[in-house]
Design a protein around this nucleic acid. Structure first.
Lengths: 290, 290
DNA sequence: CAATCCATGCAACAAATGTTTCATGGTCGA
DNA sequence: TCGACCATGAAACATTTGTTGCATGGATTG
């Protein structure tokens, strides 16, 4: 038999799963679903919880190419090892090539992003959320790669404030919306270096019209951050790679939405529930299986 | 003696550390620094690596108030369990009101997201990137809140592979694209609970057509993950709040793009540079000052 | 200086672990 | 229908696990 290219034990398991005997499939699914317990608890413990025979675990491991459960579990624990102390990162740093160089790159990147998240100031987010809560209407603008952030924010806010949240440029050219800002409304602009002209134009329009400006940016000196009422900073360049990191911006956006929702109290909750009910009625989602 | 408030076993360990015998301090520091290995490997193994006596571990555990090493390890294991709420969210939940409640919510959320990022397995991402690199064409699908992830991925990949990357449903109804998948092409599907019918349909179409399926999902048992060639897992429910977290998915998407780019070598680099040059010529961006 | 205490390594212990073997029951093909 | 085959559970196996008792050696105290 030709040995397939080595990969994550979990995916090995998953691809071999359909061709296995029924009981081993059950056990295999259990392992895949509880892989953390698989690495930490004992075989007999797992067997008891899965309602299966201990021997089934050994057999499963052998069926997918390991010498036994012990070896499978060792592979799982290595695969689950947190990125900060990853097995190869130390060695791989010496030689920047080879099969592990890619893994090292991913590990570095995730590690840097996690560190960047911890440096995001929390207080400004809470304050901005209050501003959003008080706003009669919320506009959201973001261009190019920042558009994903803007759309996410738009999506989540609309879940519980559907009529009052709107993407800039959603229903026509941006310029039409730029004149529609009013005092008492809030405008969120997302952007980082290099800054698009479009986002700067939005910021200037907000300034002119007297609306409240919330900037999500990578620097205090960003064009859309100047004169903003709330500036929420994240680190776009903190991680290796060739694109600015957006994880910080996404985390800010989601925190912002979460706090705004929590400020909304029972009214927001009711709104969210009715939205969810409508989506369920339209059978947008696959029903959960027991 | 008054028992201090129960907290993480690691912090219990740290505060008790200075008052311990020298050898137990060594061992304690070793455990604190390698707590992942402490939960997965055996006491004797750790002793060998730390250059200490196995018994020292039992003694250490007893010295800080546990019945033995086994109980200490169980506590460490529980503390490390993924998908749990942030360590100090318990405290924040106590006082859910007051002016700082919002800030606490944000801090909890960011902290949890950062922890979640570290638990993302790196290896599958590197493998999936290789699959993308080898693919003749790349399709990307994501619906509702996951659309932002899909669009970001689409944006970044198109920076250096413009003709070969495409959003499913970008140029018409989804159904047209579903029949266009071919073997040798790759399709990325992003989704988490609750899963949309649309994303599942895409996954099924991929399966039918023999293309390579890369799933970015929150669970191995997600409908689009079954039968996928690569499954990239993130924790959507790891952070407090009312909405699944997308930071993990974004981080995965960006890592995926970064590695794929790095695999592309000089050709990808040239492509990226020419794209940037075109954007600059169209004066999309505000020129940098200073 | 002597007596004591305590930290520390070693070795033996019982318990629990992963593995293997064997008997059983079911399924498929001739 | 019979035979071969395989999946499956129960029990026995050797190994490894965490623990504890004991001897040693250095530090502390009177």
């Amino acid at each position: 038999m030709v040995e397939p290219a080595k990969s994550s034990p979990l995916s090995e398991l998953r691809i071999a799963l359909p061709s296995l005997p029924m009981r081993l499939q059950e056990v295999g699914r259990f392992v895949a679903a509880n892989d953390y317990d698989a690495t930490t608890r004992s075989m007999r413990d797992l067997a008891a919880e899965a309602g299966a025979d201990p021997a089934a675990f050994t057999r499963l491991a052998k069926a997918i190419g390991y010498s036994g459960w012990e070896e499978l579990r060792a592979a799982l624990t290595e695969a689950r090892r947190p990125s900060q102390t990853a097995p190869f990162s130390g060695r791989a740093k010496g030689r920047r090539h080879g099969p592990n160089a890619d893994v090292a790159l991913v590990i570095d990147k995730l590690q840097a992003e996690a560190a960047g998240l911890r440096r995001i100031p929390a207080q400004p987010i809470a304050e901005a959320a209050r501003a959003l809560h008080d706003a009669k209407r919320i506009w959201i603008a973001g261009y190019r790669s920042c558009r994903s952030v803007a759309e996410l924010l738009n999506y989540e806010l609309r879940l519980f404030r559907p009529e009052q949240v709107q993407l800039v440029g959603a229903s026509g050219p941006d310029d039409l919306d730029l004149g529609a800002f009013r005092p008492g409304e809030a405008v969120i602009v997302v952007g980082f270096l290099p800054y698009t002209h479009a986002s700067v134009r939005v910021a200037q329009a907000v300034y002119r019209t007297g609306a409240t400006l919330v900037a999500i940016a990578d620097s205090l000196s960003a064009p859309m951050a100047e004169g903003a009422d709330h500036v929420l900073l994240f680190e776009a360049a903190s991680s290796p790679g060739f694109f600015p990191s957006l994880t910080g911006a996404i985390a800010i956006a989601q925190s912002l939405a979460a706090v705004t929702f929590s400020l909304g109290g029972v009214a927001a909750k009711k709104r969210l529930e009715s939205t969810e009910a409508r989506l369920a009625a339209a059978s947008t989602y696959v029903p959960e299986k027991g």
